[in-house]
Nucleic acid binder design. Structure first.
Lengths: 225, 225
DNA sequence: TCAGGAGTGTCAGGTTGCTGACAGAGTCGG
DNA sequence: CCGACTCTGTCAGCAACCTGACACTCCTGA
């Protein structure tokens, strides 16, 4: 029940959330909570989506491509949802989802999800806003990556993805976010470290001097809200 | 009126379209049609969106960044719409829109657009699908660009953006789509030309050997539908 | 507590793509 | 049909990034 309220609050987060008590009960009844350890697979590319996932805690990477070209499309954080797009478009999942940290997710069956949103126009509107917001983020990512030197790309990723000035991912993960190779990313990271902009640890990058990082990124950062 | 019907058919294209006659009339009354010549600016980055645009003919590039990093996020073709996302999110346009060919667009005032979709759940659903589809396309673009050599990127763009096996854009435009520089793109294009996969003309690339291009692209092409 | 796995740091050598530039061909309005 | 503009084709030199590799540190589970 508490979780159902949380899920309701998340769809279209950023705006004021309200949902009728009866719907909350329905949600709570059908909602399942799944715990994943780091590296676990939530769903794999190619299969049809049977459920919508909502991230409760931790973070989940969306992976596409294989081998050296395996790339992270996006990192989902608490409050983000996924699986809805391929449900809507009736297409197989175009990417796999794997947890980047120990994570907890809520699982909603497709038909329940569709039913709830079909019956509540104001919820549907929030959903629309959520999808639109993801689209804007995805486009921003294109801007951040295309035609920009790696040193700026790395700075941008650190600024955009850090939570509480910390990025709890391996440098290989950062490289996958950028479509670059780990040694190249490491070179930039080491340099930023030497210059005192960040702190580097085992599977962790910490922001020390955010202002200087922004300068390094070469743009006004579109920090995630 | 004919245009109103066309617009109604477009939102959520791909699925079966229906709209009540009264709504069609409303649409027709408020719809304006604007003709742009190639290179014209439809809207510029930074300003608030006041209207939603629907492309009727031609094509429109969404440009972000400045100078050498000026990049094309997406190319809108007939049936595509834009301006809705920044309206929904109540944010300034994150990119500028310029026509890549002589084009015709329909303009719908924000409030009319919102009103129509507020009153018609089934239309709203199509809208949602349209936005979701754009999100999927944007993500696919990330996959196509990240960590892939330029020779493959160019082949992918040709396959994805060509209409009737023709790409009516300058090589500078292709370079902007990839975040690459024109000479680099030209090198790849010249090579593909020499090998007989494409034909190259003034502001035009034609597909000759699609199968070989797909092989060059190094993946199963996600041709636009 | 120890062994194996995961992650970081680093490097030499090769390749790719960029920079800035220029010549020539195509297009279009007057 | 001419001049201005746009676009293509090309190049030499250079910087950025990748490849494949290896040593070392950190973490984790048995």
């Amino acid at each position: 029940m508490r979780q159902a309220a949380w899920v309701a609050r998340c769809v279209g987060r950023g705006s004021v959330p309200h949902l009728s008590p009866s719907d909350l009960e329905l949600l709570a009844a059908e909602l399942s909570t799944v715990r994943f350890s780091r590296g676990a697979v939530v769903f794999v590319a190619g299969q049809m989506s049977t459920a919508v996932w909502v991230v409760r805690s931790g973070s989940i990477g969306l992976f596409a491509g294989a081998g050296a070209e395996r790339v992270i499309l996006s990192i989902l954080r608490p409050g983000d949802l996924d699986g809805d797009v391929s449900m809507l478009l009736n297409m197989p999942q175009p990417y796999s989802a794997e947890t980047l940290e120990d994570s907890i997710c809520h699982r909603l069956d497709n038909d329940l999800f569709a039913k709830m949103f079909g019956q509540h126009p104001e919820l549907a509107r929030r959903w629309l806003i959520a999808v639109a917001s993801r689209l804007a983020t995805s486009q921003q990512r294109l801007v951040d990556l295309l035609g920009v030197p790696l040193s700026e790309q790395v700075a941008r990723v650190i600024l955009d993805e850090a939570v509480d000035d910390e990025l709890p991912y391996s440098q290989a993960t950062v490289a996958a976010l950028l479509g670059a190779r780990r040694p190249s990313v490491n070179k930039v990271v080491s340099d930023l470290h030497r210059r005192g902009l960040i702190d580097v640890g085992y599977r962790s990058i910490k922001v020390i001097d955010a202002a200087a990082l922004v300068a390094q990124a070469g743009r006004q950062s579109s920090a995630r809200t």
